[in-house]
Design a protein around this nucleic acid. Sequence first.
DNA 1: GTCCAGGGCCTAC
DNA 2: GTAGGCCATGGA
Length: 218
Amino acid sequence: MDQLREIYQRLFDRYGPRHWWPAETPFEMAVGAILTQNTNWKNVEKAIANLRAAGALSPAAICQLERAELERLINPSGFFRQKAERLQLLSCYLRDHYQGRLVSMLRQPLEPLREELLALKGVGPETADSILLYAGELPSFVVDAYTGRLFSRLGLLSGDEKYAQIRNYFSDRLPPDVALFNEYHALIVCHCKEHCRKRPLCAGCPLGEICRYRQQNP
DNA sequence: GTCCAGGGCCTAC
DNA sequence: GTAGGCCATGGA
């Protein structure tokens, strides 16, 4: 059985569908993607709740907010100065080019759209792929720190691959299936939060028998 | 008190 | 082209 399929199946059997991305609209999802950069999701939830309470979960609203007020609303998510700038850059870009509608921007072919997102300051490869996959429902595999860490421990990656190499590793071995990509990335995150942090925690790991790390550190 | 979190930008070499 | 510093909050 294909290794990536087996790993996916084991994770799915253990954790079940993750129902990602938790957001009411594509734009809210993109906001979450920026706010969660190197940040615990619990902190992001607080910031999004503040934005919702302030009626500020639309591109138009975020464009119009004073920078200091936006910083105050997203303060719990950390890095609030740069994230406030990033949110306003994205929002104003949507206002100026897509009538303030992210879904209009997302109705384009994947690759040029990905380049367009990456050209925005504050949108790197993981944020872009998250928006493409979870807001745009386009088959762009999302890589994060957990992905490299987990698959290195499994012995399938060396650990020094760059983002594009890891993304290609999955893209080359999986069908471009949006539902599969969606669930796979979410399952990797869910799994790593329990079993694959920097400190080893192997007891009960659903990948136990196929994890090289565990075999080498019994 | 220390470490870490669903990264990305900027600068120096 | 890449290693290192920086950004900031809150929970474990």
